[in-house]
Every structure is written in structure tokens, then in C-alpha cells.
């Protein structure tokens, strides 16, 4: 049973220079209850992917896909209204900034109860009861008081918990967490991730964890998609990627993580790729990583395809790294 099945999803935006493609033929699958990580730099299109799945793209965006199904329902066959309803019932999303993701003019209770009402509970008394249960489920104490408070009266971590409570109100089969901890303190970060994982286990709710933090990914996900410039570069089980990344970009991301205990000599810099992610309306010819790739060769002016590597996963590279090359590339 597929929870999420995407084949060749592309998203285009019109600009005065003509249309730009922010997502280029993205394909991925999620099983029920799976935890999938999407990792990439800012501007790699990972948030755009989340919005596209949720149907929250700006009205001027155009979405094309060979196949897009959620919970075995082909979304492309539904009308706009049907799709909105179906997605709201089956998937939820939480965002990076919990403080701005909630309406500042309404109390926590009103926002929670609104969500609960949308999922069929009409009687206010029952709505309130359910709201208390939900706050309890995400580990918020004094739910009675919180229901009467406004978002600005709660801390960031607490607000993110409320967002999660709101997200699970519909008992969704898929929860997309778009950088859920980036705006929070480090100590709160792990609490939130733990909460998400616990909900994933106890409710058999698929979790798509979007982040630019590979370290966070390594502890919590079963599978990772590495995105760059609107394309999936590598899609493989988390363990394989951590032990043996096959794409030079995944390698670079891993090497840019500072390790505790590993002494860095004075003046030695953390590894980073040269240059920055290309502007989406000014992409390089061929492989999009090309100009920044340490392994780039003549052939890289031809766009590589996402190809299967046995016992690993999918990699988009003409010269995938070999198994034994583990430490190469980090010496810079």
C-alpha cells in the first residue's frame, strides 16, 4: 500500500523572462508509516515539493505530474474542490516558524476547534474535549489555560506543539514537517523531533521530514531524498547514504557536518562546496551541480538521469562515487 506515490512532478512559475521550473520531474514513493527525509540547501525546492503535495502552491504556479496519489487516491483525477478536501483529510503540514504559522488574532482554542470542526465534530462541547485531548497528546500541560491563550503568549516550542496538535486533529495518514525545528532552540529541537517520531509510531502516520540538517535526518529517517536545484539527486535508505553516499553532492553535505570529538586544527576550515546554488532561472547546462562538483568532467554537460544502483538506490550522476572511495572527496 503506497501512502504517497509521485511520478514526474514538475512545477513551473511564469516570470517576465518566461516560465521557470522550480521542481523538475520529481518522483518518489512513501509507504504507510514510513519516515522519509528530504534534504537539501535553501532553494533546492524541498519546501516547494511539500506545498505541491498539499496543493498550497500560489495560484500562478502550474503543476504537472504523470501520477500523483495520496493514500491510493489519484489526486490528478479530482477537481480542485475535491482535491482540497481530500488532502486536508489525509495529510497535514507544519512549518518552520510556529509563531507566524498561527493566526495572531485568534486563541489557541479557537484555532484548534476550527480544525476539529472541519473534521466533522459539530458540538462545541465535544470540540473542546477533543482539543484538550490533542494538547495532551502533544505534551502540553495546563491545556485548559492554553486554550484561552493567544499564540504570542506561548513559547516557540509550545507553539510548534500546538501546530502539531492541529495537524494530527484530522488523524492524517501523512504529516509533512517543513523544517519543523529550524526556528527553535537546540534543546527544544530534539523534543519536537521525538514527539513527531512518537506520533509516527503510535498512529502509523507517515512522516515527511524536510530539513537542511543531515545530522537530524540520520537519527530519525528510514529513507532520504537529497534534493538540489529542484531535482532529486539521490534517493536511498538512510543507512546506505550515511555510510556510502554515491552522489558527490550528498558526499559534500555529509562532509560539511562538524563532528563532536573530531578536533579541528586551527585555521582548518569545514568542508564546503565552492560557489552557491544556481539561480533557478539561470541553471547550468547539463548536470545542475556541474560548476560546483569536484568530480565534474566533460560528460557532465549532458544532463544525467536518475539511475538505479544495485543495493543502494537511485542516483543522478554520470560518475557516481564508488563504494571504496569513501574518504575521497573529503580531502580538499
Amino acid at each position: 500500500m503506497k501512502l504517497l506515490h509521485i511520478e514526474n512532478l514538475s512545477v513551473e512559475f511564469p516570470t517576465h523572462k518566461g516560465p521557470v521550473t522550480v521542481l523538475d520531474k520529481v518522483s518518489l514513493r512513501m509507504e504507510r508509516g514510513e519516515v522519509l527525509g528530504i534534504v537539501g540547501e535553501s532553494g533546492s525546492g524541498k519546501s516547494m515539493l511539500a506545498l505541491a503535495i498539499m496543493g498550497l502552491l500560489a495560484p500562478n504556479a502550474s503543476l504537472k505530474a504523470d501520477y500523483l496519489s495520496l493514500n491510493n487516491q489519484d489526486l490528478m483525477k479530482l477537481t480542485e474542490e475535491q482535491r482540497k478536501l481530500f488532502v486536508a483529510q489525509n495529510a497535514s503540514i507544519i512549518f518552520q516558524e510556529p509563531q507566524t504559522s498561527m493566526n495572531p488574532c485568534f486563541t489557541i482554542g479557537r484555532q484548534l476547534m476550527e480544525t476539529i470542526e472541519l473534521h466533522g465534530i459539530r458540538r462545541p462541547k465535544k470540540q473542546k474535549q477533543r482539543a484538550r485531548e490533542l494538547l495532551d497528546a502533544v505534551g502540553i500541560n495546563e491545556p485548559e489555560l492554553r486554550l484561552k491563550q493567544y499564540p504570542h503568549q506561548l513559547s516557540g516550542g509550545m507553539n510548534q506543539r500546538v501546530m502539531i496538535a492541529m495537524a494530527i486533529a484530522a488523524e492524517p495518514k501523512l504529516l509533512i514537517a517543513d523544517e519543523p525545528t529550524t526556528a527553535l532552540d537546540v534543546t527544544i529541537q530534539s523534543q519536537i523531533i521525538e514527539l513527531l517520531l512518537e506520533l509516527n509510531r503510535s498512529r502509523e502516520m507517515g512522516l515527511m521530514l524536510i530539513t537542511h540538517d543531515f545530522a537530524l535526518m540520520s537519527e530519525s529517517t528510514q529513507r532520504v531524498c537529497v534534493m538540489y536545484s529542484g531535482q532529486i539527486m539521490e534517493n536511498a535508505p538512510t543507512e546506505s547514504i550515511l555510510e556510502n553516499p554515491r552522489h558527490p553532492y550528498s558526499r559534500a553535505l555529509l562532509d560539511s557536518i562538524p563532528h563532536i570529538g573530531e578536533r579541528h586544527h586551527m585555521g582548518q576550515r569545514l568542508y564546503s562546496l565552492k560557489g552557491t546554488i544556481p539561480a533557478i532561472d539561470h541553471l547550468p547546462v547539463g548536470c545542475r551541480l556541474g560548476p560546483r562538483c569536484p568530480k565534474a568532467a566533460k560528460e557532465c554537460v549532458k544532463p544525467p538521469r536518475l539511475e538505479k544502483i544495485d543495493q543502494h538506490g537511485l542516483v543522478r550522476c554520470h560518475f557516481p562515487l564508488e563504494k571504496e572511495n569513501q574518504s575521497e572527496g573529503s580531502s580538499q
Binding site: 504559522s101 493566526n103 472541519l118
Partner: peptide, 9 residues
């Protein structure tokens, strides 16, 4: 929060 409201349906 408008995006949140839309996502909620």
C-alpha cells in the same frame, strides 16, 4: 497562518 488555514481545509 493563511497557508496553515488553507492546509486545514
Amino acid at each position: 497562518y493563511i497557508l496553515t488555514a488553507k492546509a486545514k481545509g
